[in-house]
């Protein structure tokens, strides 16, 4: 029963974290907001980890899928698609917001991944994000232009549902990555990142697995985007289609240790803490420190924190 040990500890940790809103005042304390942001980052980071850390395809399109999820939620709500009373934290809306990015991921993933390798794939996904940004800014009534879509913020009562949903999504993302890597799929993904030709000649259908990982990552990013839309109540290009939502997950994943299950969690926790502390105590100049930290970590700990004490993982 050795395999059950990490699972039980993660479930226990999740349950304990779930109790925090009862202990700490969710409206006044910074802790709940900080953890909420950390969980959001974990979701995005695990998604990127699956594509880049395990499969070896560096994607720079996380913010595009994140924004697609948010826009889907906002549009369903605005158009009153199901004529329901409440779209706030509606599971169907959220799942649809995950599925729309998946459709886009398939549409651009299949042609891009079948043709492009390495850096070209990164540039292609980056280009997709930039096109989406122009479309959203120029979309007129449909996307709300540069101001975006405003959601009725009167439904907001407390931070608690955001916290729990974020916690659940982080748990889900970690679980998905864990079970995928323990299965045949995970073996195939790692084989692809190690040596594509060898993987292909041992009968792995490379494109299928690459696209699968890309689509799951898009699904997770979309869900997270939907949740963040419920938090901001304004879905705009400036809030969602910014490179921050791609660069932070990449940074957190690499700093924690990409290609591991625990690394992204550590990285998200650490970097969210660093960004939060610097933005409180050094307002205005904190992005400078973020830049310096990225450079220093990459120079001196390029394999991530987790590999500091687990050599050769």
């Amino acid at each position: 029963m050795k395999n059950l040990k990490p699972i039980t500890s993660v479930v226990l940790a999740t349950l304990l974290l779930g109790l925090i809103p009862f202990v700490s005042d969710s409206e006044k304390s910074y802790l709940v907001y900080f953890l909420f942001l950390t969980f959001c980052h974990i979701v995005l980071t695990q998604g990127w980890n699956l594509v880049a850390g395990y499969t070896g395809q560096v994607s720079l399109g996380t913010h595009a899928f994140f924004a697609l999820g948010a826009y889907t939620t906002a549009m369903i709500w605005r158009a009153d698609l199901f004529s329901w009373e409440n779209y706030y934290f509606d599971p169907v809306t959220m799942i649809l917001s995950g599925l729309v990015p998946v459709i886009f991921a398939l549409a651009i993933g299949i042609p891009l991944l079948s043709k492009l390798h390495g850096d070209y794939f990164a540039l292609g996904t980056l280009g997709f994000g930039e096109i989406l940004k122009v479309v959203c800014i120029k979309g007129g009534q449909f996307t709300g232009g540069p101001i975006g879509i405003m959601l009725p913020s009167s439904v907001y009562t407390t931070m608690r549902p955001h916290y729990w949903t974020a916690l659940f999504l982080a748990f889900l993302a970690t679980g998905v990555v864990y079970f995928m890597t323990k299965s045949r799929v995970g073996l195939a993904l790692v084989a692809i990142s190690e040596d594509e030709t060898a993987a292909s000649s041992s009968g792995i259908y490379i494109l299928k697995y690459k696209v699968l990982a890309f689509a799951i990552s898009a699904f997770l990013s979309g869900l997270c985007g939907s949740l963040y839309a419920y938090y901001l109540f304004q879905v705009s290009p400036e809030g969602f289609l910014i490179l921050r939502w791609t660069l932070y997950p990449v940074l957190m994943c690499v700093i924690g240790g990409s290609g591991t299950v625990v690394g992204p969690i550590l990285g998200s926790l650490l970097m969210t803490a660093v960004f939060t502390v610097t933005s409180i105590y050094l307002p205005g100049i904190h992005p400078i420190f973020s830049g310096i930290i990225i450079i220093l970590v990459m120079l001196f700990m390029p394999n991530g924190i987790i590999r500091l004490w687990k050599k050769g993982v």
Partner: peptide
């Protein structure tokens, strides 16, 4: 790992941009 050089470049970009802005 090519991510490392990419990220150093990103870090440098953050640093230069914000240094100039400040």
């Amino acid at each position: 790992d090519k991510n490392i050089t990419l990220l150093i470049a990103v870090g440098l970009m953050f640093l230069i941009e914000n240094l100039m802005a400040v």
